[in-house]
Design a protein around this nucleic acid. Structure first.
Lengths: 222, 222
DNA sequence: ATTACTAAAAGACGAGTAA
DNA sequence: TTTACTCGTCTTTTAGTAA
């Protein structure tokens, strides 16, 4: 557990732009920012450095400070807490976008029994071997980010034939009333403007969809 | 400036649901939550109460704690900081909705010289005396919340004829390429599904708009 | 001007205790 | 069991100082 004061210091650095690259600081200026003495400010920076939340390089007139990956992670954890406090009750999300052709990867994955079985168990349908790829509108790309805070169903990965199949996560949704689910890899981040949707049947046929058709994906929650 | 530890305590209470109503706590359980002794936990609660961030009522087996408006405000301030850290680079927002009829209040306010002059100064056009009212689509209501973190232009209120005219804030935007601005009161929260837009001319005529027409409001930023 | 040490002052912590 | 006090200890802070 990271100290409340360290978090406060780290946040202040982040607000000054420390997540994007080194920023200039002095004990004086940093202390003013936090309302503490330069001595304490200096010690705080030393503490953050010890915990590897920042890296520093001394200059004659101060120092350059940048937030490290672990430091940023800590801040994101905090951010997620606040998001949980203030955005939990949102009951409805709507994404819009256009149908595009995928590369057939979805079809491959959906044909693997391990995934098939788990989707069946958690979603209540056996997925059609193929995914519907949707390119999101700019406005929906933002909304998609909010979805991260919802309860996705985790489907574990596995190893077979000396190959590793990563875990995926899935979120139930509806397209034109049809029960579907968004699927994405648990770890890697694919392009954030494209989502892949699975269903119990072939959505392109069921809904008579073609490339470039505009569709809406609705997520209702609890 | 609120202490880092108090903020941490307050956040913990919020995560337990303290923003929505009274929750049960004991010094013991709260201390466990924070990794501190019950004595310190008790002192923290007292401190929060002194600052009016929480209200408490003692029970034989613990206490009921609820976060007050000022307490919640403090947390929202913190949340906004994190939002600024992680979501600053969004350059484009798009709201969609339908044109509706307002109550003519906008017309009244836009005819007041004080407002007129300030809008002229900050926006570069003298507002047409009237506002275009737009009912947002569900998806856009969410996006609208994100707009709060952008740099709105503050227009101060004033007092005249023994009446108080509140401050308003405005955000430049475009509708079908036409330069406009969203306007809303700085303090009070109106319905979150309706926005009011002003422009240098009468938008209904310029863009040939009628009630129930669908339109898109675009906000580009920096 | 810096950083970062030492040492004195201030404040926070938790054990013990009463209600 | 609680809450919340006192009190001794320990930690944190800031002033002063050196580099």
């Amino acid at each position: 557990m990271v100290e409340a004061e360290d978090l406060q210091s780290l946040k202040t650095i982040a607000l000054l732009g420390g997540c994007n690259g080194p920023i200039w600081l002095s004990s004086q200026s940093f202390g003013d920012e936090l309302g503490i003495s330069p001595q304490t400010a200096s010690r705080r920076l030393i503490a953050l450095e010890r915990q590897q939340f920042i890296i520093r390089s001394m200059k004659p007139d101060g120092q350059h400070v940048a937030i490290t990956k672990p430091g940023e992670q800590e801040l994101r954890r905090e951010y997620a807490d606040y998001t949980r406090i203030f955005n939990p009750k949102r009951k409805y999300y709507s994404l819009t976008g256009t149908v595009i052709s995928g590369l057939g990867e979805g079809r491959y994955y959906m044909s693997i029994p391990h995934y098939k079985a788990q989707f069946d168990e958690h979603l209540g349908f056996e997925p059609f071997p193929g995914t519907l790829n949707i390119r999101l509108d700019p406005a929906s790309i933002q909304i998609r980010r909010d979805l991260e805070h919802l309860r996705w169903i985790e489907v574990s990965g596995f190893t077979a034939d000396e190959r590793t199949f990563g875990g995926v996560k899935t979120l139930p949704c509806r397209i034109r009333g049809e029960f579907c689910a968004i699927v994405e890899p648990s770890r890697t981040h694919y392009r954030n403007d494209i989502i892949e949707v699975i269903s119990g049947g072939e959505l392109r046929k069921i809904l008579d969809l073609n490339d470039n058709d505009m569709i809406e994906v609705e997520i209702t929650y609890d």
